[in-house]
Structure formats: C-alpha cells, structure tokens
Amino acid sequence: MAARFSQDLKAEPNLTPILDLVFQLITFFLLVINFKSAEMDLSLKLPVIGSARPVETHGQRGLLVLNIDNAGDLKIYGRPIKNIEGYIRNEAQASMLQNRMTPADLEAGEELPTTIVIRADRTTPFRMINRVIRACQDNGFRNFALKAVNKET
C-alpha cells in the first residue's frame, strides 16, 4: 500500500522561474555578443599609444580589418592570406561594386570610401606594413585607421 502511494505521488518542480532566469541570461549574452570580434586576431600585441581613441564607426560606410602578425603575414578571420595584393584587389573590386564605382572613377581621382583598419603586431617591421599599405593605396583606398591600445594589457 505504501509502495503504491509513493508511485502515485509525482514530484513536479516548478520550472517557470528557472526558465525565466535562463531566458534573462540568454538575452544578456545576445545583447553583449559581438560578432565583429571574430575578424580581430586577438593574439596580436598592438602598440601602446596614449592618445589612441576608441573606434568611431559612425558614418563610415565600410571597414576592412587587416591583421598583420610579427612575421608580416596578413590574416583575415584567422586565415593567412598568401597573395596579399590579389586579396586587396578583390576587396577593392567588391567595394567598387558596392559603391557603384568603376576603375575609371578611380583614375579620375575618386577614392574608395572603405576604411582600411590595420591591426599590426608591435614588433612587425615597417617593410611588411608598408607592403600592405601600398597595395591598398594602389587599389584606391585612402582612408586608414591604425589600431593601438591606450595602455599595456
């Protein structure tokens, strides 16, 4: 009789509060998640410049983030790019298509509105960075943002 009584009695916890809590946590993570950080190579040690200002992306029509490690390799979304000039040429063509421009516009003195964001390791020699900058300039990019940190992390 006692055994039957215990079988009939089901313990049903009230899951509603825990579900509320979990949904609140999910909402928090959804709000703070930053998919843009995937394009940054967080292993790079950026130079320390006290006057470097946080990124202001208001009004900027496009950003192209280029990570350059201390060996001078260009990395995009963690993937090393061997043909740097070819990659930048493709990006320039994509930017031209997006902004309805033609190579003739560039020759006429117009420039691509995309801003090149350079995240380079602090020990990278200038030769490597200049190669990337020159490739960008040759393809019509003129606006650059050089990343740095305000203080040592």
Partner: peptide
Amino acid sequence: AFQLLAFFILTFRPAPIEGQISLRL
C-alpha cells in the same frame, strides 16, 4: 534554453578596448 545558454557562454569573448589613429594616406 540551456543549450542556447551554453553556446553563448562558450563563444563569449569580450571585445578588447582598442583605440585608433585615423589617417588619410
């Protein structure tokens, strides 16, 4: 919901605070 929560916790990486010097080159 727990699965979603686990995904967000595992993929959460706070973005570093970085500055920049804007240039026209």
